[in-house]
């Protein structure tokens, strides 16, 4: 779950940074007459940190680029159920409000007037995917639901007075026998 990963990683790294600042702050009143060795050591640490971040971050970053949600990425290429979505002030127009677990759904999302954002929330109100809705453009989001239930579609781009109440529902049924057999 990316949300938990982002939260924990942020807390850990911000905590490490805070510890470094507290460590230095607590020793700031002490004075070394000859600061040259201290500064030289700090520059060595800076060099090590630079390369450490580079060595760790580069493969992590490349790994995250493998599974992009964009059209040309290696997303689920199976035949998908298409749902046309049009954002209006302040409601979602869906070509259907039914989908099935295990069957890829291709949301073709656009807007009638202003910008919106299609946020798909599961029954626990956990955000599972999103894409922007923009007039004159169709953004295509492919998503395969893994849990049945009534999902909520919220607007995630500020669109005016009733933005917070622009909510639709999508009923995701259990997988069909054919789909279950394929899995």
């Amino acid at each position: 779950m990316y949300q938990t990963l982002a939260w924990q990683l942020s807390l850990i790294l911000m905590g490490v940074l805070l510890a470094a600042f507290l460590f230095v702050a607590l020793r700031a009143r002490d004075r070394v007459e000859d600061a040259a060795p201290l500064i030289s050591r700090a520059y060595r640490i800076r060099g090590i940190l630079f390369w450490a971040i580079l060595v760790v971050l580069t493969p992590v970053m490349l790994y995250t680029l493998i599974d992009l949600p964009y059209a040309s990425a290696g997303i689920d290429r199976r035949e998908a159920q298409v749902i046309e979505v049009v954002g209006k002030q302040w409601a979602w127009d869906l070509s259907t409000d039914q989908a099935s677990v295990g069957t890829p759904v291709e949301f073709r999302v656009t807007s009638a007037a202003v910008n919106h954002g299609l946020g798909i929330y599961d029954e626990d109100m956990r955000l599972v995917a999103q894409v922007m809705a923009m007039p004159e453009y169709t953004n295509t989001l492919r998503h395969t639901f893994s849990e049945p239930g009534t999902y909520k579609l919220l607007c995630l781009e500020y669109c005016g007075m009733i933005h917070h109440d622009m909510i639709a529902e999508l009923k995701v049924g259990a997988a069909s026998e054919e789909e279950t057999a394929r899995d």
Binding site: Y2, A6, T64, D67, P69, L127, V128, Q130
Partner: peptide
């Protein structure tokens, strides 16, 4: 730190505009 994490596409997909 959280800004860079949010700049990761796959994380942005569940964090953007939250």
């Amino acid at each position: 730190i959280p800004a860079i994490i949010d700049a990761t596409v796959v994380i942005n997909q569940v964090m953007h505009n939250t």
